[in-house]
Amino acid sequence: MTAVQKRVLINKIVLGLSTLSAIIAIAFLFWILGVLVMKGVGALNWDIFIFEGSPPGYAESGLKHALVGQLILVSLATFIGVPFGILAGTYLSEYGKNSKLAHAIRDISDIMMSAPSIVIGAFVYAIVVMPMGHFSAWAGAIALAIIMIPIILRTTDDMLQLVPGTLREAAFALGAPKYKVIMDVVYRGAKAGILTGVLLGIARVGGETAPLLFTSFNDNFFTTDLNEAMPSLTVTMFNYAISPYEDWQQLGWAAAFILSMFILGLNIVGRLILFAGKRK
């Protein structure tokens, strides 16, 4: 075999192996998605939205408590996290720019985005749950908000920087104060991008389980009291899945399916908005 023939052979082998890796990866993808859809759709019915949690074996059991709790927790986190995230992003893009402080904040945010979320849970436990003496929806929402802020901060920063400087100058030239320029020109120009960032941020925290385990904790019953432990889809899913009861496990898969669809929907809508904004 000549050197060239050998190279051609090795090339075929490597490309074959790499195609094999892709097939393996796709196979796992379909396996997991298939299980999620089959088990999830199979477990779906209207009772899930009507009834709250009940002991295993009861016919009338559902996920209403967890669905509502999930919505409350994520909404609350959004209300806390989004304003801070957008304002902080505004600082980086419009005031801090290339200062050392701005870069330090960007760097730290980047790291925070990949930091273990369970540690955030432990931190919120120390600063909220321990002083209050009990688990609460507030604690869970704060943990999620802390995870959300860096994501929104970075996308806002990036999106505002895409607004052309000439637009700002034109507004300044008309005698507008800086905050007016930012509110009326910069925010308006980056509207789609900021909204996308917010939606992706919500999608990201919506799937979080670990930071809720010991902040909002869990509850098998419907509640809207923000000072008490609050159920969430993710923690409910976890508890039901590791339980030995088959009907609870079924509900766990239903919760998994509903939550995945919700997060996927947010991702798709977020991208569509960004895409539509770009085309304009």
Partner: peptide, 18 residues
């Protein structure tokens, strides 16, 4: 994108049961 959208708790459930 699909896989990234799936919450990690679901990977755990899949792992445990399948």
């Amino acid at each position: 994108e699909l896989l990234a959208a799936i919450p990690s708790v679901i990977y755990g459930m899949w792992g445990l049961f399948y």
